[in-house]
Design a protein around this nucleic acid. Structure first.
Lengths: 337, 337
DNA sequence: TATGATTATGGGAGCGCTCTCAAAAGACAA
DNA sequence: TTGTCTTTTGAGAGCGCTCCCATAATCATA
């Protein structure tokens, strides 16, 4: 049977209250008493019961992490392990624990109420929510602090995301600087925020550098390899010399289409991807792409969430994070030199 | 403020005890009363506070999952996401929650005591523990129910693992049946249980089928690509016609060595891997290998653990799971036909 | 030395639940 | 009607902690 506060109190000849003060680093304890109590605590390796503390304080120092299962089956990408590492790391340093919920559809509704109302967690991180997921409204109604990973277009909630606009701009700028003149794009689905934002970044880069925007050089994809392939086929007749593809998966498809058309990468057409999934380092040629700071997104999200939990409700926090251009061979070297 | 049992009791005109009985499906409640109370509970979407319940019962219905960080940085493999899915799935159906700990080395000791003694979890699943990790002794001392994923050679604890011996045997048998005569093996480190077991399976298959065991056809590797490469180089002069490599990673190295030696796979040398990491479907040629039922390992481990938690201490449970041969092109078709 | 301010400690209530035990309410037979 | 047995309900204590308040001890100052 584990020891209790009362046991420690008895063993060190003080009251339960004093032991509690020592554990919670209250200043109103004499050095002598503190020393005595700590000795006993360390000797017995005492750990206060967190369920009891949770009951007394109304706070558990546990955060929930919700990952929709529909998303978490995507195993080709180290996204979730990295995200969890980031989350876990901050939780460790800030003395929180992580409750993980992989939300299977059939349990989803039951589960949500269980999470929200059972007093088990102080706040929730929701990863990669599907647009218009009912969970968001439940969360808002519950008054539980929460943060989304992936920005939400319509509802005013705390979120953290990659700055897809700047990233799209940065990627396109890279192509511009290398001297490409007919820069096409295969966008993501325009009804998804990420697809839209990356496309807007592409447009901005061209505008800023005085490049004309040619509608025929813009094709909408759907984030799949197949979609990238057909999109590239359609682009071919307009003879682009470079293409910014809004996801690595689509970029693979685009590269396949180029190979079939006997075009060399990057000599005939340069290819820029987005995501930097691991396989992109090993394509032929290795893919230049944009990397998201996944680990940092996890840690930052939790940091913000814990701030909200501990400081109480404040202004909505919207955090955008920078991406990193990963230059490999698929865009070639400068055409200027 | 969330409602309490007392609130529900008042609202439905019964006592706190009766509401508790209804929630816990106690039989000693009249149908009429039960109906009345359930109505109120559903109307207000009441959820009992789990911290309070935990305090009262000494059970939390939470299991801890510990993944050493040294291992979880391995991102090339969907191992952990799949394992977590399996774990999570059973937890959902059996009404448990998952507390996730990615053990960073610097926090490890602190964390372990926190997990074990703070009354937050009823049991622990420890994934891919390093051999002789001190965590095992701590777990044993703590009397907390726990199960290892990955069998432990020396200490007598609950574990669940893949049957590496049978798997090694099965893989080798496949090569035998295809008619290969000089079947070599690149083993894993022999000081790791998995490496040893797979090698023993190889030996058994050869014995059972009356093949002589040629020591020159056995080279010890270290589970790295580089190790597989050098091991294969050493094997070449003994002219094997097939090689069972104890991990896919090493198999990639072995294939590289074969390509450099201008040997065709599988015409000159067949290659059998182990693990079925995703990239193995896309090597040239695609790698025949052994797949571990990772998802099932997660779910089975939790199933066993919860049984132990709910039934109380019993005999040590040691579970071995079957593997699946994934036949692709790297071992060719039968030489007999 | 008495007084008040300050610091250190202990006692009690209460967080929301479960669980035991006793009492109340019915059911039934004599 | 009374008594016995069974079913249903309620009251109370307690899980291990925090937090408030009262009291005791210490110290500075008049």
């Amino acid at each position: 049977m584990p020891l209790t506060l009362e046991d420690i109190a008895r063993l060190s000849g003080v009251s339960r209250s004093t032991v509690s003060r020592v554990i919670n680093a209250d200043v109103n304890v004499s050095d002598e008493t503190r020393r005595k109590v700590l000795e006993v605590i360390n000797y017995y390796n005492f750990q206060p019961n967190l369920a009891a503390r949770g009951l007394a304080t109304g706070r558990t120092n546990v955060i929930g992490v919700v990952i929709p299962a529909g998303v978490s089956v995507i195993f080709t990408d180290p996204y979730f392990p990295q995200l969890l590492q980031g989350i876990s790391s901050v939780c460790n340093t800030r003395n929180y624990s992580v409750m993980l919920w992989l939300a299977e559809p059939e349990y989803e509704r039951r589960m949500i109420t269980r999470i929200l109302h059972n007093g088990l967690v102080d706040g929730v991180v929701v990863a990669k929510i599907l647009i218009n997921d009912p969970i968001i409204q439940s969360l808002i109604d519950s008054k539980m602090p929460f943060i989304l990973i992936g920005r939400h277009p319509t509802v005013d909630v705390n979120y953290l995301d990659v700055d897809n606009f700047q990233a799209g701009r940065k990627a396109t700028m890279h192509l511009v600087r290398l001297g490409y003149r007919r820069i096409a794009t295969i966008t993501g689905s325009q009804d998804q925020v990420v697809g839209y934002d990356r496309y807007q970044g592409y447009l901005k880069a061209l505008q800023d550098t005085g490049h004309p925007i040619k509608p025929e050089l813009v094709v909408e994809g759907d984030f799949t390899e197949e979609g990238g392939y057909t999109a590239m086929q359609r682009l071919l007749k307009y003879k682009p010399d470079a293409v910014f593809v809004a996801s690595d998966m689509m970029a693979y498809g685009a590269m396949r289409a180029l190979r079939e058309a006997r075009l060399r990468i990057p000599e005939d057409v340069a290819v820029m991807g987005f995501d930097d999934i691991p396989a992109s380092a090993k394509t032929d040629p290795p893919l230049t792409t944009v990397r998201q700071p996944v680990y940092q997104m996890g840690s930052k999200a939790v940091d913000v969430l814990i701030d909200i939990i501990e400081a109480g409700p404040a202004a909505i926090r919207k955090v955008l994070m920078d991406t990193e251009l990963v230059v490999r061979a698929s865009c070639g070297a400068s055409k200027m030199e």
